[in-house]
Amino acid sequence: MKPARQDIEIILEQYPRHPQHLINLLQDVQAEYSYISAEHLTLICDHVGVPVTQAWSVATFYKSFSLEPRGEHEIKVCLGTTCHLKGGQRLVEACERNLGVARGQTTDDLKFTLDTVKCVGACALAPVVMVDEDYLGEANMVILKKRLEQV
């Protein structure tokens, strides 16, 4: 697990009270807590001075925000054009079968979240999978399984 989480107040105080910092704050809270809880959303809104409706529309519009807890590890299968041509789609489906979750979902033990990403810029090694911050090039289910056993 990650080290002790930073207090929400410390995150909030890093930004001036201005609506322009709404997205920055949501990103920091997402990174720290792996999701944005209802309580945190309200605190952020109070801090930057926007109605909860605006924060809600922002948090549901952008793909990098999650309103539910995510898994300890994130598996992101790249579905950029090159990865698509080289079988990225088949790879996501294999992951779905192996982990027993659909893309965008988290395993019941909160260990893994499976997601897709639109190109990570490592097209020369397609298909690519990211496990947390690591890239796996020329990936297939065999390589990925081995990697997942290590985490």
Binding site: A38, P51, T60
Partner: peptide, 25 residues
């Protein structure tokens, strides 16, 4: 009063209130 908004985007875009509960605003 900004009581309602759009949630999500694209084909999933939907008219709603935060957390889909009636909004006291």
């Amino acid at each position: 009063v900004q009581a309602l908004t759009f949630g999500s985007r694209g084909v999933k875009k939907v008219l709603e209130t935060p957390y889909r509960v009636p909004n006291n605003a």
